[in-house]
Design a binder for these strands. Structure first.
Length: 113
DNA sequence: TTGCTGACCGACG
DNA sequence: CCGTCGGCCAGCA
């Protein structure tokens, strides 16, 4: 493994592996990376990701409540919501419905890696 | 260099 | 149930 991989790069790698129509949380990613208490850094990485040319499906990452807290970072109030709904994710009042059903836990899904 | 901020989370009263 | 506080760590003035 490339030990030179930065925390941000790890976050990007995990987010890119999020399947279509699935979502995860900042804390889940942070915990998967071994920085459970650094959930903030995950959001930071995603915020920074938009300044990169990488295809980071940041709209698939929400907070622990399934709330689209980062929608504003997409430049519009409906951008994040529209992206998710286009993937079949039901959203109401900026909150993902059936969140736990479509929740994608990297620590559980990537346990073989 | 120091200090504030932030797309979070969990604990406490 | 609700408000508040601490911790985590990188970026920026």
């Amino acid at each position: 493994m490339a030990s030179e991989t930065s925390f941000f790069q790890k976050v990007f790698a995990v987010v890119r592996q999020i399947p279509y129509g699935r979502v995860t949380s900042y804390g889940a990613i942070a915990a998967y990376l071994g920085n459970k208490g650094s959930a903030r850094m995950v959001g930071w990485a995603l915020n920074s990701s938009k300044y990169h040319l990488n295809d980071i499906p940041a709209h698939r990452v929400v907070n622990r409540q399934g709330l689209l807290t980062g929608k504003q970072a997409f430049g519009g109030q409906n951008t994040m919501k529209d992206l998710l709904t286009s993937e079949g994710v039901q959203i109401e009042n900026d909150k993902i419905l059936h969140f736990k059903e479509i929740f994608w836990d990297p620590g559980k899904e990537l346990q073989n890696q």
